[in-house]
Design a protein around this nucleic acid. Structure first.
Lengths: 363, 363
DNA sequence: CAGCGTCTTGACATCGGTGTCATGACATCG
DNA sequence: CGATGTCATGACACCGATGTCAAGACGCTG
């Protein structure tokens, strides 16, 4: 490999002068610079970051730990993919800076995280971002105090700076949209209640109802407590939940789902129950997983999970801390996502619903 | 940052001895080793790869260039995601080796590739993999001869070692499966004929027919020449193509699609035409994009695009070349994907189809 | 023309590991 | 007991860049 010494010899100058040229030191005479640049081009010299890093004690590396890459293929799982968008946002935010991103994938095994952090420390990364596959609390091993760390899509007990989706607000706005279209009986088929996202979104759901003066009905809120790897079980639960809703004396005119994939399944289930979409019932997802939301017929109303923005914010915070130009935030940074109105939700004509011993009558 | 000298001082040995301990040199007395390990643990010493790399001239880094990460979000595009699986395969293959993967994303802009290669050269990567988002011919700038390179999902004119999906065989096996179920009139709604994959798969389609003694009917093969970013245009073309097929005097009993997403759209279109799936017509996709193929109702027969395996093979080839334990292949390495039979394809009862001036009659 | 400041360049040490070779301690053998 | 060999360890140089400091060239001033 050609070194700075080879270039120096070829250009008949000292290595230090070559170094000056590379680093655009203005104290180099134009003629000398030309000589050096010619030699660099002729020899195809590329400076070694390793040597540079050793001298300056700055690696120019930023580490990223994620399961986004490995989690996609094996899981047909809903949340598996979108966290990749966080990675994309991070990539985008690092573009244009002089830093290089080192990506380590957990391969789905959390126990590998310490090992990955270790590798990063060996590479002397200047900062570290941990990306979780869904909104959750985590606990990470200690890293050197000099290594800045930011959490994306997760938080811990040590007040490590973190960037989170504003799940409460997202669901609230979605439901507000349904209410604005005249819906009053709005069901919510959520994920497992043990998820942070579910708790926050359920709160958002009730907040929206309350703001509109609609009383919440617990019969309309059904969480699915399923194991993530059990696709048939999930489908079964969804059938049951939908049947329960349809059998209510006063069934919902709209259903919100925990994510777009649940909604996608529901399209098939509801149609096999003889309902027309969206005229008989309106549906809304979550995630705005465009592959699903835009391809389904009718296209699905959904809420952005602002993963891309989360990635960008996380990296911005980290870069600011590395440069020393910005302080790390001490409270979680919330990023909100936009509601995308599509044709799966229709205007609900103002109706008066009456109860009778025989069931429901709509006038 | 604590260095090997700090450890040496703390353990009261020479730095060289610490180095020996780190590298598991057996020539160190047990008592000495213990002293050193204690000091390492107490000080939290982590060796610097930069320093190591400089001395040994081996970075332990492998570079990966891809658009897989950035291409996902903006494109609702079919092929946008799956190449990520190649990256995952690569990750998997590098696990357990002592190498670290450096991932560079093009951000969708091919003109950034030289810049990324440059960064890799600065980091002295020992090998380089380029991953394309779909099967295609590419052309890359020269890299240092000492840097091994492997292409995944693409090939070039310089006989650079490459790993490709066996598209011809995949489509052939898929169609063979349909034929085995009694289908004789099999349509193929492919991608744009300008894609390598389309050309190869179309060949596989005809090969399967020919092997079964069925004459190919050009009216059954319709390529969609659409711009990738035009979702509504794509949907329109699909409506038209399907209508054309259904209007044929002898319409197909099965339709193969260029990918699972096209098939997913077709579910809606065919049903809106009053057809029941799969009893009236059988459908098959390509890619085995499980999120779609398994979630659709009925689940979709499809062919694996063996992206994961492509990634693994590519990395294996590269690692072999870096170690010097294996020669680079001189011809493209083809990887074949399995056919996944699902309920979207039904047994076609042996029928005799007669033509009459009034149309088709099935007995 | 001596003295001084400015401009340009180079010598040298240094970052943190590791390869090479040397050294001292100790065991073995004739 | 001295010669030889083995074992464990250390001294030193080196990888490739760059920060520090100094030196030579040059022009300007008094």
């Amino acid at each position: 490999m050609v070194t700075i010494y080879d270039v120096a010899k070829a250009a008949n100058v000292s290595p230090k002068t070559v170094s000056r040229v590379i680093n655009r030191d203005p104290a180099v005479k134009a003629t000398t610079e030309k000589k050096v640049r010619t030699a660099i081009a002729k020899l195809g010299y590329v400076p070694s970051t390793a040597a540079r890093a050793m001298r300056s004690n700055k690696s120019g590396l930023v580490g990223l730990i994620t399961g986004a890459i490995s989690l996609c293929p094996d899981r047909t799982e809903p949340s598996g993919l979108p966290d990749l968008f966080i990675v994309q946002g991070i990539q985008k935010a690092i573009e244009g800076t002089r830093k290089t991103l080192l990506i380590a994938d957990t391969g789905g095994r959390h126990d590998r995280v310490p090992e990955l952090i270790r590798t990063f420390e060996e590479h002397r990364v200047e900062g570290l971002i941990y990306v979780a596959e869904y909104h959750q609390r985590i606990s990470l091993p200690k890293v050197a105090a000099s290594t800045k760390m930011v959490l994306a899509n997760c938080y811990d007990d040590n007040a490590t700076p973190c960037v989170l989706p504003d799940d409460r607000q997202g669901q609230q706005r979605l439901v507000e949209g349904l209410i604005a279209k005249g819906h009053r009986r709005i069901a919510y088929l959520s994920f497992s209640a043990s998820h942070d996202a579910t708790i926050l979104r359920t709160k958002g759901y009730y907040d929206a109802l309350k703001a509109a003066g609609i009383e919440g009905d617990p019969a309309l809120v059904i969480p699915s407590d399923i194991a993530d790897d059990n696709a048939t079980g999930e489908a079964q639960l969804l059938w049951d939940a939908i049947d329960r809703l349809l059998a209510l004396p006063e069934p919902p005119t709209a259903i919100c789902f925990g994510n777009d994939r649940m909604a996608m399944r529901a399209y098939g289930i509801l149609r096999s129950r003889g309902l027309s979409l969206p005229s008989d019932i309106s549906l809304a997802g979550y995630d705005n997983y465009r592959l699903i939301a835009e391809t389904l017929y009718p296209p699905l109303t959904s809420v952005d999970l602002p993963y891309h923005a989360i990635g960008i914010r996380a990296m911005q915070i980290l870069l600011g801390a590395i440069d020393g130009t910005a302080e790390m935030p001490t409270a979680p940074v919330l990023v909100s996502g936009q509601v995308h109105q599509r044709q799966s939700v229709t205007e609900q004509p103002a109706t008066i619903i009456q109860f009778s011993p025989l069931g429901r009558t709509t006038q």
